[in-house]
Design a protein around this nucleic acid. Structure first.
Lengths: 141, 141
DNA sequence: ATTGCACCCTGTAGTAACTATAGGGTCAAC
DNA sequence: GTTGACCCTATAGTTACTACAGGGTGCAAT
């Protein structure tokens, strides 16, 4: 490939994004379909690489694809207030915090159950017991 | 419905699992297909409710469906050592810990970026800047 | 020129765990 | 009989990828 032209593999290596994922992003409109070589290979430019880098970074920070799309749209509007960007980021941070809270609660309970496991037979397994329905008529059947 | 027979809606309400999800569990073999009423309604019994409760609790603790399937299989083997159960639970706890670590790192970085946002225009937005590609030729274009 | 291998292409389906919808039947209270 | 809640099957969608299958291209080594 000649100077300035990048293949999909080049972009993949440069950003740590799989080739298939890059094609996926093109399909859903996150990336523009580039010109093609005579061999029908995608011919990307530096701007495409830049845009994919943005997407990769945002994804790594946990932003959903629609949020990434919005951020990309906003990033082109230089004179506009960045209030909307701030909002997207804060909403996302709040969501991350919710997930953290849930996961911590889950971990606490799971850890507690595991610690109680004396590990004899299934009949006396505290883990199974914790999951099994409470039987009002006696031991778990 | 007569005594002892439970509808899918009964199970749904008793376990907080959606009707559609219960049908899904039947389809993938986690729940046995019950007898039907003359009106073709599913006719569940107490054992079915118990099994669904187990599934629900395990799911709430974050176990994947295949892990739930294994746990269910093990729970029937009373005389067997609960070592396998212990293993599944510990593997899962390790996975939860990995997720927690990743999520915490993500949160730290996201929080840091947000705090730097002075919120003027997009051109000077620290969030967008953090996502944008590094331009060796000068300011982000 | 030929070969071999890494890479590229499109199209399609699968992953995990649900969830929603369309269109139609059942049941029980009124 | 009517009505509204519930039930049924079939199919497709959600999110963000990921994995083929089958075939074409490019380039270095021979």
């Amino acid at each position: 490939m000649s100077s300035g032209i990048l293949t999909i593999g080049d972009l993949s290596k440069a950003t740590g994004t799989k080739v298939e994922t890059i094609r996926y992003y093109e399909r859903i409109g996150l990336l523009a379909a580039p010109d093609r070589t005579s061999g029908n290979y995608r011919a990307y430019g530096a701007k495409d690489l830049g845009r994919l880098s943005f997407i990769r970074r945002a994804r790594d920070l946990g932003f959903g694809l629609e949020q990434v799309r919005e951020l990309l749209g906003l990033s082109d509007q230089k004179q506009r207030s960045c209030e909307a960007v701030d909002m997207i980021a804060r909403d996302h941070l709040a969501e991350v915090d919710r997930k953290l809270t849930d996961l911590k609660a889950l971990r606490r309970e799971l850890d507690s159950i595991i610690r109680q496991c004396g590990c004899g037979t299934i009949a006396e397994c505290r883990i199974i017991e914790a999951l099994a329905p409470i039987d009002p008529n006696g031991p778990v059947k």
